[in-house]
């Protein structure tokens, strides 16, 4: 296993605060704490290089200089990269977090370490593997050990979970094959909870998603109304191949296409919408309002997708695209969104 270690000027044995402006340095083999890593690796691997940079130098242009560090690291074709530990040091923590983030984004196995109260933790914990450690240098040995364990497991493709490895939660849900089927696990959970014992949920509660509704339109009579639906009403043949479930696509169709419609949606009984699509896409009501002057006009197209097991991020992306599409027209616009 080829390992590269990233350190700051102090742990890279260049100097203290007076050397914090040191630009990137690459040393062959292990320097400073990387020597302990090399010793622990033994025949299992090799520290091929130590990349060193001063804290001020990195933080002065964080993204670009971390990129230079990552380029230097990748030149050594590492299997894994360690960064830090940064302990409680703020500038070093930010540098470690950014380097780990960028390396992870490049598909490289990278593990950093910092103390729980390091301000960089909040910035970077969800963006790469960061191991908790003591705020002071006395935690060096334990931190290096935890970092190596995690990095080696990742390199071997082992299942990495919090019950086996110490790292800050990354906010993702990962699939894991348990020893027992879910039915056994849920019965054990029910018995434990009913007895008043300790128990642990497999799905911790998160903060609710919240959206703020747009303010009402000032005057409906001056407003062009756009009709949009997540009920999957599409022209016959579903020309844009909008998925009936977990949709990633939306469509925009002219009203002339109303003559032949079908429903691409797997989440409700489509017969009622197929009998009368106005139940989902209330074109008739909108047209009536336009005729009697309640609304200023009807947008010449309708928008559709299938809101069925669709990820929130995909919904947000589709909404942004549809809004951008609508913004091509001038004047006051309101959107009437129907759902199933």
């Amino acid at each position: 296993m080829r390992l590269v270690h990233y350190l700051n000027q102090f742990f890279g044995q260049v100097g203290g605060e007076e050397a914090a402006d040191t630009a990137i340095l690459v040393r062959a083999g292990a320097v400073g704490p990387a020597r302990a890593v090399a010793a622990a690796l033994g025949n299992a691997g090799e520290v091929v290089a130590t990349v060193i940079a001063g804290d001020n130098w990195v933080n002065a242009d964080l993204e670009a200089r971390a990129q230079l560090i990552c380029d230097a690291v990748m030149e050594h074709s590492p299997d894994v990269v360690l960064a830090g530990p940064a302990f409680g040091a703020g500038r070093y923590g930010v540098a470690v977090g950014e380097v780990v983030r960028q390396l992870t984004a490049r598909g490289c196995i990278a593990v950093g370490a910092m103390a729980p109260d390091n301000p960089a933790r909040a910035l970077y914990a969800s963006r790469g593997y960061l191991v908790p450690c003591d705020p002071s240098v006395r935690g060096m040995s334990a931190a290096l050990s935890d970092m190596m364990r995690l990095a080696i497991a990742l390199h071997r493709g082992e299942a990495v979970t919090h019950d086996r490895f110490a790292y800050y939660p990354r906010g993702r849900r990962i699939m894991l094959r348990h020893n027992a089927p879910a039915a056994e696990r849920v019965i054990a959970l029910a018995v434990a909870k009913a007895r008043g014992g300790t128990y642990r949920t497999e799905i911790p509660r998160r903060a609710s998603l919240e959206w703020v509704a747009a303010p009402p339109v000032a005057s409906l009579a001056d407003t062009i109304v756009v009709l949009a639906t997540d009920g999957g009403v599409v022209p016959c043949g579903n020309p844009d191949r909008i998925e009936a479930s977990m949709a990633t696509k939306w469509g925009r169709y002219p009203w002339e296409a109303l003559t032949c419609l079908e429903i691409s949606h797997g989440g409700y009984d489509r017969r009622f919408a197929q009998e009368d699509p106005c139940r989902v896409l209330p074109w008739d009501g909108l047209e009536h309002w336009r005729a009697v002057g309640v609304i200023g006009g009807v947008f010449p197209y309708w928008y559709t997708t299938a809101g069925n097991a669709t990820a929130p991020s995909v919904c947000e992306a589709m909404a942004a695209q549809i809004l951008s599409d609508i913004e091509a027209i001038r004047g006051q616009v309101g959107v009437l969104l129907t759902s199933t």
Binding site: R172, R173, M175, L176, N179, P181, A183, V186
Partner: peptide, 14 residues
């Protein structure tokens, strides 16, 4: 992802 618990798969926090 058997909803009556036949499978061993589940999700954990990463």
């Amino acid at each position: 992802t058997s909803l009556l618990g036949a499978g061993q798969w589940g999700c954990v926090e990463d």
